[in-house]
């Protein structure tokens, strides 16, 4: 497991707060992603409506990539001694 070497001796409390904030932001991202998937037009059909659905799919894809990137950062933090 790779980890980032400390620049200054980090206080355990501060590191805990960073980890906790990162976890909170990951949860917020999950909630935004879940909410995004409910944005589906049902009552109308048109090329513009299809463009909207495609845009939402693109955003969902971006958020999935963001989720794995954020997860990578959180794992790197967790690996800190």
């Amino acid at each position: 497991m790779q980890f980032d070497p400390p620049t200054v001796p980090a206080s355990p409390d501060e590191l805990l707060r960073v980890r906790s904030d990162a976890a909170g932001q990951a949860r917020e991202l999950d909630m935004v992603s879940a909410e995004l998937l409910t944005l589906q037009p049902s009552a109308w059909r048109s090329p513009a409506a299809r463009a909207f659905v495609e845009s939402i799919a693109n955003v969902a894809h971006s958020l999935a990539q963001m989720d794995s990137t954020l997860d990578e950062g959180i794992r790197a933090l967790a690996a800190q001694p």
Partner: peptide, 25 residues
């Protein structure tokens, strides 16, 4: 904050990248 605590590495660059992705999204 991560950069202040740790040398530039995986965590800080991952958070920077995730922030940019959030703005793009």
């Amino acid at each position: 904050r991560t950069s202040r605590l740790l040398a530039p590495g995986i965590a800080a660059s991952a958070f920077t990248a995730a922030g940019r992705m959030a703005r793009a999204a």
